[in-house]
């Protein structure tokens, strides 16, 4: 008889010997129920899991306002302010150029003349 055959016969005997007394079965059932009560269940929606994780790590919803939301609001307001300042700077520059062009001695048609443009490039060397 080879190893596989021996193992198969012993396995059959082991399976037949799985009858346990009522006391042990009750203990095993209680252990199983205790384990199920503590089963770790992860959220199947990543966004919610992430949000839950942030809330959990920050110490609950009440701690979320000063720790997360306030800095985020400051950051967003700062970005809006920087963007507004850049737009106004750009508008001022354009206004300045327009004013210089309109009030200059050179007629506007000169800027549309390709020959004048070529002369400007040539003379700048």
């Amino acid at each position: 008889m080879n190893e596989q055959q021996i193992a198969y016969r012993i396995k059959q005997c082991l399976n037949r010997g799985l009858e346990l007394d009522a006391g042990k079965l009750v203990r095993l059932k209680a252990a199983r129920e205790q384990a199920l009560a503590r089963q770790r269940v992860e959220s199947r929606i990543p966004v919610l899991a992430w949000a839950g994780n942030i809330i959990g790590k920050s110490g609950g919803p009440s701690a979320l306002v000063p720790r997360v939301l306030l800095p985020m609001a400051v950051l967003i307001l700062g970005l809006i302010a920087i963007n507004h300042w850049r737009d106004s700077q750009l508008a001022a520059e354009i206004e300045e150029i327009d004013a210089a062009v309109l009030t200059g001695d050179l007629p506007l048609d000169a800027y549309l003349d390709k020959g004048f443009d070529a002369w400007l490039k040539h003379s700048s060397y």
Partner: peptide
Amino acid sequence: NAENALDIVQDSMLKLAEKYGA
């Protein structure tokens, strides 16, 4: 030992559920 064996199975079940339940 039956009591120790039951404790071992219980501990194993708890560890599985707590750490790998998902």
